[in-house]
Write a protein that binds this DNA or RNA. Structure first.
Lengths: 148, 148
DNA sequence: GCTATATATTTGCTATAGCAAGTATTTGGT
DNA sequence: ACCAAATACTTGCTATAGCAAATATATAGC
């Protein structure tokens, strides 16, 4: 992986490969735990645990996913019995998505492992690094976002 | 997006959303250029431009992709006439993948735009930030990689 | 030279991802 | 109250992604 090239900074490939290995280790950890859930399904379950009854649009915005993608992920979490969909009373276009009892159990089963993975991933890095990390990631994000 | 939570550092979601927006803007730029190519196909074309005749395994390793994924990406770049596959003489299990004339033209057409995107993405960030960025990304990567 | 093992690639399966088009419902303007 | 535009969601299409099993070829150990 070349680091420099006529002054331009290459960042995409580093971000890509880091994201891939994170995903792989999450998947492996969930498999080891014996929970049939993917990382993207976990993101939704985690989001609902902290705020239950979100609409699919809210879930999409919160997880930076496409509405179509969220629609399909929730198809699967519902099939697996982690979530339930109900039409919103006040706006019949919307669903409200809720965690089931099983969904909450899965959350509690997985959460400690997620914390361990986060600590493992950040090992050797400091609080200052975290500030830098957030600033750099948010800057790149905004540089593209603001151009939209 | 919560930044802290009982001391553990959340990094996956930031990396994920940044990677997504990068990909989207690359895709849009390629569409605007009128070139029918995806970001992942671009990665392969770029790699071959710098070292032609790589095997699929080498391309997979260099781009942190799965061999199956690379196999399918190259199916598409061959269909589109950007690349060609030939069986290696010395090892008939392998292919050697080469850029075609069209593939090289596509590279030259796209490269300036890619440089612009890189500069745009890094705007507001310094050379020191780049060192931090590389160190942090590589540390997270290694923290997981070394556990394998 | 044979056989077990390793390597390179493909194919099938499932999931994520984004775009575009379609449906249903709601909202805003008049 | 009515109609146009906006919003929420789904579905079809194509591409990326990883795992596992299958095929073909190469290599190592004997």
């Amino acid at each position: 992986m070349t680091t420099h090239q006529n002054g331009t900074k290459i960042f995409g490939s580093h971000i890509d490969r880091t994201m891939k290995i994170i995903r792989q280790h999450y998947m492996q950890a969930f498999r080891d735990l014996g929970v049939d859930i993917t990382t993207e399904q976990w993101v939704i379950v985690d989001s609902l645990f902290h705020q239950d009854g979100q609409s699919q649009t809210e879930l999409a915005d919160g997880s930076f996913k496409n509405m179509a993608t969220v629609s399909r992920i929730i198809d699967l979490t519902c099939q697996k019995g982690f979530t339930e969909r109900f039409r919103s009373e006040s706006d019949k276009r919307r669903y409200r998505v809720f965690l089931t009892k099983k969904g909450k159990e899965v959350y509690h089963k997985i959460k400690p492992t997620v914390d361990q993975l986060r600590q493992k991933g950040w090992k050797g890095l400091s609080d200052e690094d975290y500030d830098d990390f957030l600033r750099i990631m948010n800057t790149i994000f905004s540089n593209f976002k603001e151009a939209e």
